[in-house]
């Protein structure tokens, strides 16, 4: 269950940001997950609820934003967006060799807080 480690890491970032902004509660968070990150949104949501319980983020609304990752075809150089699963022929030349252009992984983008 590495979703649990990820939920804990996300909560640590949120708590640090909340402290910096003197927030009393975290009401909502927007987390971006790109296709290179190997996480299951439903599992993240379940773990997130558990790790937030009892703290300033208890009951916080989790908004997961799934983003694609850029891929570059090694045959024709065409760049396109790749979804989860990572296996897709190039839409232009059907080439199978793809290079993934560095995704952002998982990012805590913003939060709604109560001061």
């Amino acid at each position: 269950m590495h979703e649990m480690s990820i939920a804990i890491a996300a909560l640590e970032i949120m708590e640090q940001a909340a402290l910096k902004h003197s927030a009393r509660r975290i009401l909502a968070v927007w987390i971006e997950v790109d296709a290179s990150a190997c996480v299951e949104p439903e599992a993240i949501a379940a773990c997130f609820e558990v790790v937030c319980a009892g703290g300033i983020a208890q009951g916080c609304a989790l908004h997961l934003e799934q983003s694609p990752i850029r891929a570059r075809c090694l045959d024709c150089g065409h760049e396109f967006d790749l979804g989860p699963g990572l296996e897709l022929p190039c839409p232009l030349c059907a080439g199978r060799g793809l290079r993934l252009e560095g995704g952002r992984g998982m990012v805590v983008n913003r939060m709604e807080i109560e001061e």
Binding site: I6, A9, A10, I13, M14, A17, H21, A23, L27, I31, R104, G105, M106, V107, V108, N109, R110, M111, E112, I113, E114, E115
Partner: peptide
């Protein structure tokens, strides 16, 4: 209530 930008990688 306010929205704050965090922009921090989870890992």
């Amino acid at each position: 209530k306010s929205i704050i930008e965090v922009e921090a990688a989870v890992l």
